[in-house]
């Protein structure tokens, strides 16, 4: 009997992160990368006061956490599997730890930052 893979866990996170990233990232990138630097947004749209209250609120914090954390898990899964595409076969266990470990650290860090903002 072949061993059951634990991929479903990572694949589910990858899928959720992929959908979120697909829906949300283009607009966010437009905002932080072009709209705000080029002065196309209202005054204080990305300002300290506004962002603190958004990120500090329960809804805002949860949304930001969801977007950032799921994006990390999505990218980690894809990058890990791409290593295999490029012929990295040995030491895959180590790379798995590195990729998903990084996503895990990113998730914790994001949560920590949001808690710090909320307090």
């Amino acid at each position: 009997m072949s061993k059951r893979s634990h991929e479903p866990i990572f694949w589910s996170l990858f899928g959720a992160g992929g959908v979120v990233a697909a829906l949300v990232l283009p607009a966010l990138v437009l905002i932080t990368g072009l709209a705000w630097p080029l002065g196309l947004m209202s005054d204080g749209a990305l300002g300290y006061e506004r962002m603190s209250s958004v990120a500090g609120s329960l809804l805002g914090g949860l949304v930001l956490f969801g977007v950032i954390a799921l994006t990390f898990w999505h990218a980690a899964h894809r990058i890990f599997h791409s290593l295999h595409d490029f012929g990295v076969h040995r030491g895959l266990g180590v790379w798995k730890m590195v990729c998903y470990g990084a996503a895990f650290v990113g998730t914790l860090w994001t949560a920590g930052a949001l808690v710090a903002i909320a307090i």
């Binding site: 061993k3 059951r4 893979s5 991929e7």
Partner: peptide, 11 residues
């Protein structure tokens, strides 16, 4: 299903 669920299956 064991064939499907294995690393060498769909994953």
């Amino acid at each position: 299903m064991p064939i499907v669920n294995a690393e060498e299956g769909v994953w």
